[in-house]
Each structure stands twice: as C-alpha cells, then as structure tokens.
Deep mutational scan, measured.
Amino acid sequence: QVLVIRIKIPNSGAVDWTVHSGPQLLFRDVLDVIGQVLPEATTTAFEYEDEDGDRITVRSDEEMKAMLSYYYSTVMEQQVNGQLIEPLQIFPRAC
C-alpha cells in the first residue's frame, strides 16, 4: 500500500513524499526526510491533525504507529465513500 506523506513547510507550501512501505515506516525515517526538506531546521518531532483538527505530536515509533493506523482508517472511509484519498499531512516541529 502506497502512502503519500505531505510535509508542510512553514510559510512556503508543502512537499509530497511517496512511501512504498508505509506500515513499516519508522519515526527516524520520517525525521531523515524532513531533514532533507528543511536542512536548516533541527526537527525533533512532527505533528498531524486528528479528526477533530487537534494537533497530535509524534516523537517515537509507538506514536508513529498510532498516527499510521489513524490515517489508514480514514483512508478506508474515504475509499468506501468514493472520495479522493488525501495525503497524510505532517507538520515538522523544531524543538
């Protein structure tokens, strides 16, 4: 299952990153890619938005798994409803 992660860049749009092994993705892998997209920032975590629009911070593989399972459940709903699949949007955080 292909996963598209949209890395939101403060004040300048976003970069889409296509991942072919989504469920095996590790927290460190995401930080590495964010580091390539935002080389001047030191990113130690990132956030995503849940169904209520609240930002949830991801700082570990466990939290990463929770984010992915949340995302895959929303994708299934979108597929069932015949909607366009939205990329998983993440917001890098420099701490």
Rank of each mutant, 00 (worst) to 15 (best):
V2A: 10
A14V: 13
S69I: 08
V4G: 03
E86V: 12
I85A: 09
Y72Q: 12
E62H: 10
T18K: 12
I85R: 11
P39E: 03
T18Y: 02
T43A: 11
D52A: 14
Q78F: 07
Q83H: 10
E49K: 07
V37R: 03
K8P: 04
D54Q: 12
D52N: 15
E40I: 03
Q79V: 07
V19Y: 11
T57L: 13
A45T: 10
R93H: 15
T44R: 09
I85T: 06
L68R: 01
Y48P: 00
R55K: 08
V4N: 15
I90D: 02
I9F: 08
V19D: 02
G82Q: 11
Y72T: 10
V15G: 02
E51R: 12
S12P: 07
E47I: 02
G35Q: 15
A41T: 11
Y71C: 02
V15R: 05
R6L: 01
M76R: 14
L3G: 01
R93N: 09
Q83E: 11
Y70M: 15
A66H: 13
F91E: 01
D16K: 00
K65W: 06
L88P: 01
V4F: 14
C95F: 10
V75Y: 09
S12C: 08
Q78L: 08
V37S: 05
S12I: 07
G35E: 15
P23K: 07
R93C: 10
P87I: 04
D29W: 03
T57E: 09
V58G: 01
T18A: 07
V19W: 07
G82C: 07
P92L: 02
F27L: 07
E63F: 01
L3R: 04
V33Q: 15
A45I: 04
Q79F: 06
D52E: 10
I9E: 05
M76S: 12
T44C: 08
E77N: 12
W17V: 07
R28K: 14
Q78H: 13
V4E: 08
E62R: 12
L26I: 11
M76H: 13
V30N: 00
F27R: 02
R55I: 04
E63K: 02
D32I: 02
L88Q: 02
P92V: 04
G13C: 07
T42D: 15
K65S: 11
M64R: 00
Y70I: 03
F91D: 01
L31N: 02
I34V: 05
R55T: 03
V15F: 14
V30E: 08
P10L: 02
L84R: 14
G82M: 07
V37D: 01
P23V: 10
G82H: 12
A14S: 14
T57H: 05
D52Y: 09
N11A: 08
T43M: 07
T57K: 05
L26N: 14
D50R: 14
Y72V: 07
Q24S: 09
P39Y: 02
T74R: 11
E63L: 01
Q36S: 10
V33W: 11
E47K: 02
F27V: 03
V58N: 04
S60C: 14
T42C: 11
D32H: 09
